Simulated scan of single mutants.
Amino acid sequence: MPLAQIPLRIWRQRGQTFMFRGHAIRYWVAGQGEPLLLIHGFPTASWDWHYLWQPLAQRYRVIACDMLGFGDSAKPMDHAYSLLEQADLQQALLAHLNVKQAVHVLAHDYGDSVAQELIARHGEARIQIASCVFLNGGLFPETHRPVLAQKLLLSPLGWLLGRAFSRHSLVKSFHQIFGPRTGPTESELDDFWSLVQTHRGPRIMHKLIAYIPERRVQRDRWVQAMQRGEVPLRVIDGAVDPISGEHMVARYEALIPNPDTVLLPDIGHYPHTEAPALVLEHYLAFREAIAAPRRQMACS
């Protein structure tokens, strides 16, 4: 049964605002129970999770924000954007909401890197992460295959490309990375573009793209944190994603002990919008699997 969409107009009405280092950040909270932090990707925003939002909120306390520079949050021009700062932002949001218990994480793309930083901080006793599930993302710089627009944004002319970035540019990029039969509708493309262009977002895209070289700097620290096995992990991955599809999962399986991976055939870079029911099924199965040992211990 298809999952219900939350129209962007309604989603925006449900958002709240808090201040992070002088910048207004939009965030969303729903449900009760164990906290589940949803971390979105580049170049979109937390509305990416709208198909999963209601089903997850029936089971957990779901929390998400548009990160600094994304969606409806502030997009300062004179700012050095950093994945480490975005991890600080996630922790600040949890503190704002008075979340003190261990947090489960579900992340995508750029958000995967933020989640990797949180897992590393878990090992440093700076936050408690109960589990993490990664959707398509560049977990390993050596397997990340950026599309042409990303390469150009990283070039010396990136600032010029960013200013020229349009709905047409977004559509062209998305057609490259979605599955062959699961691309976004024209209405969805309008909404994705609305989130990108709000607060003159294209002006800073060349600054946001600095996450790609930053991943290389942090690579060993993040991979070692995953290899320690302190946090239960699963990868749910759209197999035909040219950026971080089946080839990334193969690298994950080679590097991570006892890897837990799920490949979704014919699905691209945005599995949570392309095949949300499948993502939900595999996510809930993961949560059930990691909860079962705790129940057995409680009963013994």
Rank of each mutant, 00 (worst) to 15 (best):
M77F: 07
E142S: 05
P242L: 08
V279F: 00
I256N: 07
P293C: 04
I256K: 07
P213C: 05
N258M: 15
L52G: 00
P55Q: 05
I267H: 06
W28S: 00
E230L: 11
A130T: 05
P156H: 01
I236N: 08
C132Y: 01
W53E: 00
P271C: 06
G31H: 05
Y60F: 15
T44L: 05
Q197D: 12
A87I: 14
V217Y: 12
V99N: 10
A64H: 07
W49I: 02
F70Y: 13
Q296K: 11
G238P: 08
G229I: 07
P213E: 02
A92W: 14
L160M: 06
Q86M: 14
R126D: 08
T44W: 03
M67I: 10
S244R: 00
A102I: 00
H247Q: 05
P257R: 02
D112E: 10
L264W: 09
I204E: 04
F174Q: 01
P276V: 03
L84R: 15
R121Y: 09
A277L: 07
I39T: 08
P2L: 02
S173M: 05
H122L: 00
A92V: 15
E186D: 04
W222G: 12
V62M: 07
M67Y: 13
G22P: 13
K172D: 02
Q150P: 13
K75A: 12
S173R: 10
A254L: 09
V105L: 13
V62N: 04
I25P: 06
H269Q: 07
A95S: 11
D190G: 08
P180Q: 09
A254G: 04
S173Y: 00
L93V: 14
Y27V: 15
A74V: 13
G138P: 12
P242G: 11
L56I: 04
F165Q: 09
R181H: 10
P156S: 03
H79A: 06
R59L: 13
D190P: 01
Y60A: 12
F18P: 00
Y110C: 04
L263I: 04
F42R: 04
I267S: 09
F18L: 03
P76G: 13
D78G: 06
A250K: 13
H272T: 10
T273E: 14
I10T: 15
F286C: 05
S244N: 15
S113R: 14
P146I: 01
R200K: 09
I290K: 13
A107R: 12
E34Q: 12
V105S: 01
W47I: 07
A92L: 08
P156D: 11
D241F: 03
G162M: 03
R121G: 05
I63A: 05
L255S: 15
A210I: 13
R251D: 15
A130C: 11
Q54R: 02
P242R: 04
P180F: 08
D241R: 12
A4M: 06
G229Q: 12
P276C: 08
H104I: 01
L278K: 14
V147N: 08
V103N: 13
Q5V: 09
F174K: 00
T44G: 02
L284A: 11
A130K: 13
E186L: 05
L152N: 02
D220N: 06
W47M: 04
K172N: 10
C65P: 09
F70W: 11
R21K: 14
H122W: 02
D109E: 11
A102V: 02
R251M: 12
E117P: 09
R234F: 03
G138Q: 04
P276L: 06
D237M: 02
